[in-house]
Amino acid sequence: MPKIKSTTEGEKIELQMTPMIDVVFQLLIFFILSFKITTPEGDFNIKMMPLGKSLQTLADEIPAPPLTVRLEAGSDGQLASLSMGDRKLKGFDELHNIVLSRVGDAGPSGAEEVEVELDCDYDLKYEFVVEAITAVSGRVQGNAILPLVQKIKFASPRKAGG
């Protein structure tokens, strides 16, 4: 039986690396150019007063009256005063402490039962509203977020002089 001898025995096959490196560098450039460092964004769920419902219907649906937080704007849109009911508050920390004690008083399901209504001036800068929502909706403990009030709604905005 004749033996088949490979004529290429001992020859080194050279891999063509250049096209692969080209593609790899193109991918690298694409990722470098489209890379952008962004801070993570988070969400707050809110409830709005439904349209076309009478105040009586709303009163029937909501078992307990909400805690009303009033945010008044100064002429430049900055927060001029913060109050809950008739009580003037010094800042969002005090608001947070009040809400914390109300939720605690309401028992184990307090976070679900207590409702907060934000009554804001039309011209108030939105960042103060988010600050108020942050104060009432939870707190950071270590790496975890302890939820407080989950039902947050807005009253109709108040226009200056109206």
Partner: peptide, 15 residues
Amino acid sequence: ADAEAKTGEVQELIG
């Protein structure tokens, strides 16, 4: 919404 947007406009948008 932008931090400096008016709260009333945010509410109008939701409305």
